[in-house]
Design a protein around this nucleic acid. Structure first.
Lengths: 142, 142
DNA sequence: GTTGTTGCAAACAGTTTGCACGAAA
DNA sequence: TTTCGTGCAAACTGTTTGCAACAAC
């Protein structure tokens, strides 16, 4: 369990409101869960963890989608068919995911512009962007 | 429709046999379809295109999985929930996908080792690999 | 002839939607 | 008090599996 950074409740409320959304106990609970573990969760994991609090999975789906739109949640490649989401800072970044413990960290300063220019020249494409994700073993699992 | 390269039937048969699989008309038809269009197809598109030939979608799923294992098909990011697959040469490579016509080309010489070393140093991760896909506009759509 | 493949139908898993009730603003 | 969010159940979509007939080797 790797605590990333805990958003004060006021700030969190403001984030939701800014996005035109209401601040509800369910939404807070879901976010707090992601905040508590940088390995992230699948929808069913969140639903299972918050079942005691009677939070339905429909709400989990909708809240995760909202947090994704707000760029506070990023989807990472998962093994099975189910998607996994991890907390992240808004803006472009790449995820580095541990294949053992699933812990994810962001790399924000991965510059691929040189590579993009090279590819543009080789292929004639006007490169607009990329999806990039690294995987490996984190220092604890190594 | 961008013809990539047409595998002679003998070679194709050999490829399947080498993988411990039989060479069937269904498998050939599915592969020929991918061979005919570098924009690739989703499962339902393949099934629809080959429905006149009475090829069931179960076969489409199984053949695509086989071709993926043989590394002759790569999955690319698609908009909707359905996966899209494009023909590719075996081995590690990255896909460059046109957001307008979906045409995909491979880039094989994209060296990320420098970046991987940098990230390893910054994060303490033992980086083992990456998923990378570029998107933009191909020269025809530009 | 033996063994793998096909294609149908049924099962499954993940996700979305309709709607009445309840809570945030 | 208005509007949005919740949670249940049902619907949907994409994918997998069981199995008998069939085809490749």
């Amino acid at each position: 369990m790797n605590t990333i950074y805990v958003l004060p409740q006021k700030e969190l409320r403001h984030l939701f409101n800014k996005a035109g959304l209401r601040f509800t106990p369910q939404r807070e609970a879901i976010w707090r869960l992601f905040e508590s573990n940088s390995a992230g969760f699948t929808v069913s994991q969140v639903a299972a963890a918050l079942a005691p609090q009677k939070i339905g999975q429909t709400t989990v789906y909708r809240t995760i989608k909202a947090l994704q739109d707000m760029e506070y949640l990023k989807r990472v490649h998962a093994e099975g068919g189910e998607h996994r989401f991890v907390a992240s800072r808004p803006g472009h970044s790449h995820m580095l995911v541990c294949r053992s413990c699933s812990k994810a960290v962001e790399c924000t300063d991965c510059d691929l512009s040189v590579l993009e220019k090279l590819i543009a020249k080789q292929t004639g494409f006007a490169v607009e962007g990329h999806h990039l994700e690294f995987f490996g073993l984190c220092s604890e699992c190594f």
